[in-house]
Design a protein around this nucleic acid. Structure first.
Length: 628
RNA sequence: GGCGGUGUAGCUCAGCUGGUUAGAGCACACGACUCAUAAUCGUGGAGUCGGCGGUUCAAGUCCGCCCACCGCCA
């Protein structure tokens, strides 16, 4: 019986276009899928798009499009993105497809019939502008932070899923199955969530308010909400409950997600499965985020990395390889274009590409392109032993989700092939038979590497094999030494596999300049005018209850009271601030800092040693005065 | 505040259940070689393995406390 493997990415919400976060998770999943296929597993790889909900309806309206048209377009962009990156998905599920809706309704009905869904009144603070309920925490001074309006108290009828009922079971399951959620750090996080009541889950919205969704089968006035719809894609795509695919693949299910949606996949989803009496998935694999220059990527910082742009410049395989090799799965990884180029040049151009090139040249030059199979000698047997051990090591690393180490192991082998060639120096060998032995060994090694690197670089490794006259291969084809037949011919011409990327070579001085503060790009006056800068008087200051560095500062801004949280604790004592008139950026979007809402920020200058100095007007000015 | 993660050569990282003089890649210096994409190969230097204390014949590796950064929760 063949082994089966089922891996999924999240289905991506179509309110945003494909970005590096989507790409990273998907590349990781694709690597797993391709590896398992090569390693003889009957593999199914699913991705797709999540297309219902209020936000989508709003985004469609803003774009002046019907929801269906809008989601069709964005969904197509995801498909296109995956084509660019050579993602080998077997199916692409969309939550607006009939096959999905059918399963969602059926599943809801089953759980409803079992009594795990009940109707409840929900009372909350509703913001008309946002068209949604806000939590107390979101409010700033009792008002909606986005609309500045006090929300009204409203009742709404929702259906709830009895999630809390399954909490004990889930804790138990996670405790009994240490590799259910991995890496371990996320498992611990989930256990800590489950150590306290998780409550029941609201799973519907009245149709009067949100219409873009799947109707509850027993109450057409409501649609199901977000996660209950989305999560079921993992089984709807397989044809739950009777589909062949479902029976075959679901028992081997592994989900790949980013850490931002841990709770939904580690808590909501298993309890939903349990309630539906469906066997829970095998593994939830949680990936970290990618950081640029060690920081979060954000539009405002302008450090957002576009993998599709990289792909255009350096090729999809280079991007895939770089992301997989340079980031430890499960932790946040630091990536940059310089890093990509460095990795590419060192590993792919110098080590692997050049190895291929030198071997090819020698086979053509010394043996007329024909390989003779010669038995390994003493030096060769060391290479053979290393080669024999390699697939097993890779298998182990992949199973442990250490993709970076899997790739490093293959590269170490590539380096040892380079070393081997230098040692044997075929260009010096007089005996033709011995020379053939060396060349055969090198080609055989490259053939092995091409298979083991294929999950990361499907296109380039296929090219590499073509260059050496090989067809498609699997891990089984390279596990034993000597698979290349005697008399094998390699084609005479081939392009360089990994042309070196020439860096805009920076001289020593230019390198230094980079470390200097960057010249700020000029801004238009209109941009400056968007800032509402005001003079504010400090009324009171307290230490932040949950952070040593932060102060909670209450300000008078011309009659209006404001609370601002600032990282000033190391620079000012609370009492020395009271009464000062300082400069406030008043229209900064409110933000919660360690539990306290901060609305605005105080301007300060930073000295060379890092000390901060608050800006103050040079002469008496009333609080609230505008600064321009 | 609670829980968890991370902290190892200039940089990026490996170090499993504790065991000989702590490793790799990049970068740097020198050397070898010339089949090769100015490539490859060798040699070299540097690290109080975040800090302090403890357990042990023996600790990056276990325990406690502390520091820095990050995440989750409250």
């Amino acid at each position: 019986m063949t082994k089966t493997f089922y891996v999924t990415t999240p289905i991506y919400y179509v309110n945003a276009e494909p970005h590096i976060g989507h790409a990273y998770t998907t590349i990781n999943a694709d690597f797993l899928a391709r590896w398992h296929r090569l390693d003889g597993y009957d593999t199914f790889f699913l991705t797709g798009t999540d297309e219902h909900g209020e936000k989508i309806a709003q985004a469609a309206a803003r774009a002046g499009k019907a929801p269906q048209q809008f989601v069709d377009e964005v969904s197509a962009k995801f498909k296109n993105a995956w084509e660019i990156l050579h993602i080998s998905y077997d199916d692409f599920i969309r939550t607006t497809e009939p096959r999905h809706k059918k399963v969602v309704q059926r599943y809801l009905q089953e759980i409803y019939d079992r009594g795990d869904i009940y109707y409840g009144e929900y009372e909350g603070l509703y913001c008309v502008g946002c068209e949604r309920f806000l939590t107390e925490k979101e409010l700033v001074d009792g008002k909606c932070p986005d609309h500045g309006v006090e929300p009204e108290r409203r009742h709404e009828g929702n259906y709830f899923f009895k999630m809390e009922k399954y909490r004990a079971w889930l804790r138990d399951h996670i405790n009994k199955n240490p590799d259910f959620i991995r890496p371990e750090r996320y498992r611990n996080e989930v256990l800590s969530i489950l150590s306290e009541p998780i409550g029941d889950l609201s799973i519907s919205r009245p149709k009067s308010r949100v219409s873009w969704g799947i109707e509850l089968p027993w109450d057409p006035d409501h649609v199901t909400y977000v996660w209950f719809d989305a999560l079921l894609n993992y089984i709807s795509a397989l044809g739950y409950p009777d589909g062949e695919r479902y029976k075959k693949y679901w028992p081997a299910a592994q989900h790949m997600i980013g850490k931002d949606i841990l709770k939904t996949h580690a808590v909501f989803w298993p309890t939903m499965l349990k309630a539906g009496e469906v066997e829970v998935y095998k593994h939830l694999n949680v990936g970290g985020h990618l950081l640029a220059e060690g920081r979060k990527m954000s539009k405002s910082l302008g450090n957002v990395i576009d993998p599709f742009e990289w792909s255009e410049k350096y090729g999809p395989d280079a991007v895939r390889y770089y992301l997989l090799k340079e980031t430890p799965y499960g932790l946040d990884g630091v990536v940059s274009e310089e890093g990509l180029i460095e990795r590419y040049n060192a590993d792919l151009a110098n080590d692997l590409g050049n190895l291929l090139q030198r071997v090819r040249t020698m086979v053509l030059k010394y043996s007329g392109g024909v390989l003779r199979r010669r038995e390994p000698g003493e030096t060769e047997s060391a290479v053979v032993r290393e080669a024999a051990a390699l697939p097993g090591r890779i298998r182990g690393h992949v199973q442990a989700l250490k993709f970076n180490q899997a790739l490093e192991a293959v590269l170490a082998f590539v380096r040892s092939l380079n070393r081997y060639i230098n040692e044997r120096a075929p260009w010096k060998i007089q005996d033709p038979e011995d020379r053939e032995r060396v060349l055969y060994t090198a080609v055989e090694g490259l053939r092995l590497a091409s298979v083991l690197l294929e999950p990361a670089m499907p296109v380039k490794m296929a090219e590499l094999r073509t260059t050496l006259g090989f067809e498609t291969l699997t891990v089984a084809d390279v596990e034993g030494w000597g698979g290349t037949p005697d008399g094998h011919r390699i084609p005479a011409d081939a392009a360089i596999l990994f042309p070196k990327i020439e860096q805009a070579r920076t001289s020593g001085d230019a390198g230094k300049l980079k470390a200097e503060p960057e010249a700020t790009a000029p801004v238009a006056y209109e941009d400056f005018a968007k800032l509402d800068l005001r003079v504010a008087e400090v009324k009171s200051v307290e230490k932040h209850p949950n952070a040593d560095r932060l102060l909670v500062i209450k300000l008078d801004v011309g009659g209006e009271e404001r609370t601002v949280v600032g990282g000033l604790a190391e620079h000012y004592r609370p009492e020395e601030l009271v009464g000062r008139r300082v400069v406030l950026l008043a229209n900064l979007k409110p933000r919660k800092l360690r539990g306290v809402v901060s609305h605005g920020m105080l301007l300060a200058a930073e000295g060379a040693d890092g000390t901060l100095a608050l800006l103050e007007p040079g002469r008496e000015v009333e609080p609230g005065s505008k600064i321009s």
